[in-house]
Amino acid sequence: MALLEVKKLGISFGGLRAVDDFSMTIEKGQLYGLIGPNGAGKTTIFNLLTGVYKPTDGTIRLDGVNITGKSTIEINKAGIARTFQNIRLFSNLSVLDNVKAGLSNHYAYSTATGIFRLPGYFKKEKAMNERAIELLKPFDLQDDAETLASNLPYGKQRKLEIARALATEPKLLLLDEPAAGMNPKETAGLMDTILTVRDEFGVTVLLIEHDMFLVSGICERLSVLNFGQLLCEGKTGDVLSDPEVIKAYLGE
């Protein structure tokens, strides 16, 4: 069964139809790409999937469960985590604490346990610290654990965002332009990281990206979006050679 099933998804902002009749199916373990020219509605789809916007039409099913119209928090608990196009870290917290915030719901203890330092506090915090370091390792961030998130270099901030999203133990990881602002060398490193993450953590990845080197390098399937509508869908190689797609990107 498919992990994510999106059927006839649509949203209108007043008179503007931002996304219309968009359908997509992602299988478990797939590395899926969502591409399209600027303003095509890619980030809007991410916002629909994560409950930031409520869709006006259509349904979203994750692992067979209908999550259409649920809140961001419920959707995260159901198993979707994301990163943002403009990095959104908890900048005054350390790298470790950023990841621990992501672990928060899986290593829960009550506020009173925290205030009175009951045994549960030490047990859970210890487990949380260990898990957080484990999550930082694939991103080579374990040595920066005590650094403030805002003091990290740009590339590492992007990686930390992925690590934090993974901490919530998602089934589906959404990456919004992970390679934006990276040089070719950093992008190559990121591609390896994404592949490692997929294999090691067993997550399915859906990513938005403009960098065709990355898209053609790691994505197995692609959906192309243009003016809020699905232009074409299929295997990466076929999609990128489709004349319609080239026309949408480069014009006639």
């Binding site: 961001t72 985590a81 908890f90 005054n92 917290l93 621990k100 915030a101």
Partner: peptide, 20 residues
């Protein structure tokens, strides 16, 4: 504690806090 950390996350970035 876990609660205090969550509160600071909300202060620093509300949207990201919701997303996790």
């Amino acid at each position: 504690s876990r609660t205090g950390r969550a509160v600071m996350c909300i202060r620093d970035n509300r949207i990201a806090a919701e997303s996790i």
